[in-house]
Deep mutational scan, measured.
Amino acid sequence: TKKDTKLYCICKTPYDESKFYIGCDRCQNWYHGRCVGILQSEAELIDEYVCPQCQST
């Protein structure tokens, strides 16, 4: 049987260590910077990140 692979981001793909991720400070989920429109250089300046799903609630 195929091992359950945890899926990340709004694009629902397995973790890829070569890509940049940003963690939501509300739901603790991880998102590709590219998918949520945040560059790694911008993320370093953000104190708290809230993902699109949490922003809409």
Rank of each mutant, 00 (worst) to 15 (best):
T1K: 07
T1M: 09
T1P: 06
T1G: 09
K3N: 04
K3M: 08
K3V: 13
D4E: 13
D4L: 06
T5Q: 12
T5L: 10
K6G: 11
K6Y: 07
L7F: 10
Y8K: 15
Y8Q: 15
Y8P: 05
C9W: 00
C11D: 02
C11A: 00
C11F: 00
C11P: 02
K12A: 05
K12P: 01
K12D: 07
T13V: 04
T13N: 05
T13Y: 03
P14R: 08
P14C: 05
Y15E: 04
Y15V: 06
Y15S: 03
D16S: 05
D16M: 07
D16T: 05
E17I: 08
E17M: 09
S18T: 07
K19I: 10
K19F: 05
K19P: 03
F20I: 06
F20R: 09
Y21M: 15
Y21D: 14
Y21R: 08
Y21S: 08
I22M: 06
I22V: 12
I22L: 14
I22F: 03
G23P: 05
G23M: 13
G23T: 13
C24L: 01
C24K: 02
C24P: 03
C24I: 01
D25A: 13
D25M: 12
D25G: 12
D25I: 09
R26T: 15
R26S: 14
R26E: 10
C27N: 02
C27S: 01
C27F: 01
C27Y: 01
Q28P: 07
Q28L: 09
N29M: 10
N29D: 12
W30A: 15
W30C: 09
Y31I: 04
H32D: 01
H32G: 01
H32V: 02
G33H: 15
G33R: 12
G33T: 06
G33V: 10
R34P: 09
R34W: 05
R34G: 14
C35G: 00
C35H: 02
C35N: 00
V36G: 01
V36D: 02
G37I: 01
G37R: 07
G37H: 08
I38E: 04
I38Y: 11
L39G: 09
L39N: 15
Q40A: 11
Q40Y: 05
Q40M: 06
S41F: 08
S41V: 12
E42Y: 05
E42H: 05
E42F: 06
A43V: 12
A43E: 06
E44D: 14
E44N: 10
L45Q: 15
L45E: 11
L45R: 14
I46G: 06
I46R: 12
I46A: 08
I46E: 06
D47E: 15
D47S: 12
D47R: 12
D47H: 15
D47G: 15
D47L: 11
D47K: 15
E48C: 13
E48G: 10
E48S: 14
Y49E: 03
V50C: 06
V50N: 07
C51E: 02
C51F: 01
C51G: 02
P52N: 12
P52Y: 05
Q53F: 06
Q53P: 12
C54F: 00
C54A: 01
C54T: 00
C54N: 01
Q55P: 10
Q55W: 06
S56K: 12
S56Y: 07
S56P: 14
S56A: 14
T57Y: 05
T57E: 13
